[in-house]
Design a protein around this nucleic acid. Structure first.
Length: 1091
RNA sequence: GCGCGGGUGGCUUAGUCGGUUAGAGCACCCGGCUGAUAACCGGGAGGUCGCAGGUUCAAGUCCUGCCUCGCGCACCA
């Protein structure tokens, strides 16, 4: 037997913190999983956060949506296990540690000791773990944080190694070059994230250089902002569709400054559009040439022998590249293979020689030029220009056309402030281009929310897929498990056992190796120390890279289970996963790497559904980020409005995929409106239920014995719950929750509870009271279950008090498809028809009637304002004109409208008149351009009744168009001069025009009643001020002057309403110390005393 | 530059197949109601629906261009 306790005042924060304790003690989360052991699995995969930053409100949003779906599916009977995860490798960790330990270069790190450095990283990763854990628990994101997967754990790393070996064996892993921003001082290349830290505006010399064609007197002009790359030049790229001009110098220019120049008669080729900007000489255009005709021409290398030709047939020729534009320079792009991404790609494509002219230290290598060899490239700009001018060379005219300073943003090292060099580095790649078709195919099978992220942004990314550069020249990460000998022979190691076997082999071949125990630390520098042996008997050393940390998280679906080393079948049963959910910024991050790894390793998609969340912006619409310092601390709200309100706000503030402007005021509003209202509805029920010792189990109330009001709210609940569930199934959580909130505030609180208040006041048992209590009980229990996935706290308190059980092991009111035989999580949109049987009966006609009644009640208030008649002064009679029969609601309407009686008036014309409107959809096709003129003639016709009669007779023609009955909409409105109003309910053919008319006459009887109500209201308000118990009795004294007569029955009514044991009325002057008020000219004073 | 998504009263937003007077909430003003809360009800003020064209009898809605914000991609030779 469960009897509700009184609810008491709401203290959301206390309620929530108390519940957290209860959940912990009762292991409610575990229970909610265990109770579904036989259910179909619904596989969720947690995207691992990095715990070396403080969690902000934007993390709460993502976790709210993850939690919502998992809780919902759990209530539907699915087995939803949620393993937590931590992303622990990668650059951000290293940067953090480097800053703290002041290790500003790789040299410094190595001096400090790689082991010590990595130990510091390993520790740093957990800096904010407790903050994350506290946030996660406080917001009630249910996830298993006690057994999380951790990307730095040996088991996890071993699974990653295994995956890499799969790729290696399929020839999807290869070694190549990648041009990266590189700092020769620190010896490190940088990720875009780090590069972004160091952009600076600098002014540098740029140069226009003449490339002398072979077998042609002309030179091609090219421009570069990095003169130090010129010795590495091996090609010139032109746009095939760009028009170039061959110009001949006519005369010297005036006011030439700087080095370089050209002689009269010399011929230069450049983009026609850029001549004006580039050339300082007066020239004649000799010929216009399309870029495509220049392709293939050979030119003389600027620096003889700086780069060996090798077997290249395309070196020092003009090449075609469609990315060449005429926005800068000369429309000809100087190409140095190793020092630009485009250059490198073009070079690989057409077979240019790929040799460095610059060392890793940033100096020119020997053999480039006697004046440059061994010097730091950035300090050689002048020397390069001098060499090109040809002071010491035999080429009389020189190769420099012009120098020009150039202002641009250029990346600098965020640690040393030195300019970065784009530099082709040794790098490892996954051959994603080889599986592009499969990627696209798998992506097609994913249910994306919203769909345009999958088709658009993500699809776009996949269609342009490039090979994935997965190696990083760093220390803290999953080491690349490839060993290589001097001839380029390679072995990829896929497990610790394999490593041990290879080490044994190497040792047998005479190499010395440290111990490699079963629990060897799979990190640098430990793994670097192992030397393996090639099949040729040569030593093999590990490629000195760690993996992109995105590779780690991309392995999560299997690495979290230590697949394939873990014998149990967890992985097989949980792949691909049913649901992932992260911010849209993960599109090319985790969303991609999951798919990239699953495609290359398993030839399978990784996830079936992906909810991509919009960014979280601050109140100004700026992205929330650590660097901006505009992160909202979730605890500000957890400690004020509570996690329930915070979560509900996040879900209702907009579609999950839209950017969310986080508005702190919105959380307050949600609290005040949604949760306070819900609590007060609950409180109303619980307080009376406790008073009456109501026990839902030991009494019943049949459907037939419920009032119309009960049946109406039950039916409304049915409709709302169904729509709510449908909203969930098509990802419209925001719409679902807004609708539910509207139900609670509007239908339940403002109408049902308000209308039902008196039913519970009755101290005696009655069937009607019981009906109301059962109804409230049923409504609240169902509501709790519907709300629980979104905001799990308050509803659990309510549910526990009403039913004795937690809401979190309760069933979903719309059905439990997960617990049916043979169910799968794929049946996301199952048929609802049978499932909704679990909801109370639906009666749409009743819903329509009640909607009309409520509108009439509101209409009454409007009429009174127009007629300046206060609400508490009753009217003798009200008439309802037209509309469906509302007999059953007359009592209700009398109370709401404050009228003595309601009658139905069938003579529509007494209060209503016809007004004609135009049905544009019907009339427009025939009337065409005259439709508006016809419409206005119809509307403004002086006798609408007659016009309607004509139309019905078929004898109405306006502007040559026959007006049919279907062309017009007949509306009815109240006639002028009555205290009346007409409302329209429904649409189209079902539209109803109902008028309400109120009798405005006063009688002594009505005036007395009105006065009584005013007095009562004041006394009630006083009772409340005095903080009296509901049952407390009072003594009342009232003094009245200039008041209408107050009849005996109304005096009795006052004392009854206000629980006055004694009430005295006087006509004389009141004492000075009593409260008084004015109503319609009457002076009323009163005094209330507790008995 | 390319792609995706936005731009609707002071703020947050709804707006379906193009259809009559663009709908809410917050805040503001007036009034009412209340043993009902930070609530509720009625009324008011506040909108060139980013701009400009176009299609149409009719455009917040469809088309084109532009401006602007956010995100992503590319580029910065």
């Amino acid at each position: 037997m469960v009897r509700p306790n009184p609810a008491g005042e709401l203290d959301a924060v206390a309620l929530e913190t108390a519940l957290l304790e209860t959940w912990k003690n009762e292991r409610t989360f575990q229970q909610s999983i265990d109770s579904n052991r036989t259910g179909a699995p619904f596989i969720f995969l947690e995207g691992p956060p990095t715990a070396n930053g403080k969690p902000g409100i934007h993390h709460v949003v993502a976790r709210a949506y993850k939690d919502l779906v998992c809780r919902w599916k759990t209530m539907e009977g699915f087995l939803v296990e949620r393993k937590g995860g931590w992303d622990t490798h990668g650059l951000p960790v290293e940067i953090e540690v480097q800053k703290r330990l002041d290790l500003m270069s790789n040299e410094a790190i190595e001096e400090f000791g790689m082991q010590a450095f990595n130990d510091a990283c390993r520790e740093s990763v957990w800096t904010y773990e407790s903050a994350w854990r506290e946030m996660t628990e406080r917001m009630a994101y249910w996830v298993d944080l006690d057994n999380p997967y951790v990307t730095l754990h040996n088991d996890y790393v071993e699974s990653c190694w295994w995956a890499l070996k799969q790729m290696f064996d399929k020839d999807l892993l290869y070694r190549g070059h990648k041009v990266l921003p590189y700092c020769p001082q620190t010896g490190t290349s940088y990720s875009s994230h780090e590069v972004a830290l160091g952009y600076k505006e600098v002014e540098e010399p740029s140069v226009y250089v003449k490339f002398k064609l072979v077998d042609d007197s002309a030179s091609i002009l090219a421009w570069t902002t990095t003169p130090w790359t010129l010795p590495g030049n091996v090609g010139l790229a032109v746009g095939p569709d760009v028009t170039y001009a061959r110009c001949r110098v006519r005369e010297e220019p005036e006011g030439w400054q700087g080095r370089g120049g050209a002689s009269v008669g010399e011929e230069l080729i450049l983009a026609k559009d850029l001549m004006g900007e580039v050339l300082r000489h007066h020239v004649d255009i000799i010929e216009e040439i399309p870029g495509s005709s220049l392709v293939g021409k050979s030119y003389e290398p600027l620096f003889q022998n700086a780069v060996p030709r090798g077997d290249s047939t395309t070196a020092w020729t003009v090449l075609s590249a469609d990315w060449v534009t005429t926005t800068d320079g000369t429309g000809v792009v100087h190409t140095a293979v190793m020092y630009g991404e485009d250059d490198y790609n073009l070079g690989m494509e057409v077979g240019l020689p790929a040799y460095h002219t610059v060392s890793m230290e940033g100096n020119f290598v020997d053999g480039v030029h006697p004046e440059l060899d061994g010097r730091y490239v950035k300090s050689c700009d002048d020397s390069v220009m001098d060499i090109l001018v040809g002071q010491n060379d035999s080429i009389a005219s020189g190769l420099l056309y012009r120098e020009k300073s150039y202002l641009h943003d250029y990346p600098h090292c965020w640690r040393t402030d030195h300019p970065l060099l784009y530099y082709a580095m040794d790098s490892w790649f996954v051959r994603m281009t080889a599986v592009k078709e499969r990627l696209l195919e798998f992506n097609d099978g994913v249910e994306w929310a919203p769909d345009w992220v999958g088709e658009g942004r993500f699809g776009e990314w996949l269609r342009n897929v490039k090979d994935w550069a997965i190696s990083r020249e760093r220390y803290w990460g999953t080491p690349l498990p490839v060993w290589r000998d001097e001839d380029g022979n390679m072995k990829c190691i896929g497990s610790i056992a394999e490593l041990q076997a290879e080490i044994a082999k190497a040792n047998a071949a005479g190499f010395e190796n440290p111990e490699c125990p079963d629990d060897v630390d799979l990190h640098r520098p430990v793994v670097d120390a192992f030397t393996l042996v090639s099949n040729d008997g040569k030593p093999m050393h590990r490629e000195p890279f760690v993996m992109d940390c995105w590779f780690d998280s991309g392995c999560a679906p299997f690495a979290q289970w230590h697949h394939p080393f873990d014998e149990n079948k967890t992985f097989d049963a949980s792949f691909p996963v049913d649901y992932i959910c992260e911010g849209v910024d993960q599109t090319r991050g985790w969303f991609y790497t999951l798919l990239a790894v699953s495609t290359t390793v398993f030839d399978s998609p990784a996830y079936k559904r992906c909810l991509s969340l919009g960014l979280i912006l601050d109140a100004e619409g700026k992205k929330m980020s650590k660097s901006r310092g505009n992160i909202v601390d979730p605890w500000d709200h957890f400690n004020r409005e509570g996690a329930d309100a915070t979560r509900w706000y996040m879900v209702t503030a907009g579609a999950p995929w839209n950017p969310l402007k986080f508005d702190s005021n919105g959380v307050r509003e949600t609290y005040a409106k949604m949760f306070l209202t819900l609590w007060n509805v609950y409180r109303f029920h619980a307080d009376y239920a406790a008073l009456d010792a109501f026990d839902p189990a030991s009494s019943t109330s049949s459907y037939e014995s419920r009032s119309r009001l009960d049946r109406w709210i039950l039916s409304k609940l049915h409709s709302t719950a169904k729509a709510y569930h449908e909203g969930f199934t098509n990802w419209s959580f925001h719409k679902a929750c807004r609708e539910l909130e509207d139900f609670i505030v509007n239908d339940l609180s403002n109408w049902y509870v308000r209308r039902s208040r008196r039913r519970l006041w009755d101290e005696a048992e009655s069937g009607d009271k019981l009906a109301c209590q059962h109804t409230l009980h049923e409504i609240l229990v169902t509501l709790c279950r519907l709300i629980a996935p979104v905001s799990p706290f308050m509803v659990d308190t309510i549910h526990r008090n009403l039913t004795g059980e937690t809401v979190h092991t309760a069933v979903w009111p719309i059905g439990t498809p997960g617990s049916t035989q043979g169910a799968t999580a794929d049946a996301w949109n199952e048929d609802l028809v049978s499932a909704t049987q679990q909801l109370p009966l639906q009666d749409t006609e009743l819903e329509h009637e009640m909607a009309l009644v409520r509108e009439l009640a509101e209409t009454g208030r409007r009429i009174r304002i127009d007629a300046q008649r206060r609400q508490r002064l009753p009217c003798a009679e009200g008439w309802i004109v037209a509309g469906p029969s509302l007999e059953a609601y007359h009592d209700l309407l009398c109370e709401e409208l404050n009228v003595e009686s309601i009658s139905v008036e069938t003579d529509l014309d007494r209060f209503q008149q016809v007004e004609l409107g135009v049905n544009f959809r019907a009339l427009a096709p025939r009337a065409k351009g005259d439709v508006n003129a016809i419409a206005s003639q119809i509307k403004n016709h002086p006798d609408q009744d007659a016009l309607l009669a004509d139309i019905r007779n078929g004898s109405c023609t306006i502007m040559g168009v026959d007006i049919l009955e279907s062309d017009v909409e007949v509306r009815r409105a109240e006639r002028e001069g009555y205290a009346a109003a007409t409302i329209t309910v429904g649409e189209g053919d079902d539209a109803l025009h109902v008028s309400l008319v109120l009798d405005m006459q006063d009688t002594p009887h009505l005036l007395s009643k009105g006065l009584a109500r005013d007095i009562t209201r004041r006394i009630q308000s006083k009772r409340k001020d005095m903080d009296l118990e509901i049952e407390a009795m009072i003594d009342v004294e009232v003094w009245m002057t200039d008041a209408p007569e107050l009849f005996e029955e109304d005096r009795v009514w006052i004392s009854k309403e206000t629980r006055a044991s004694g009430i005295a009325f006087a006509e004389d002057q009141p004492p000075a110390d009593v409260e008084s008020f004015n109503v319609d000219g009457a002076q009323v004073s009163y005094r209330v005393k507790k008995v």
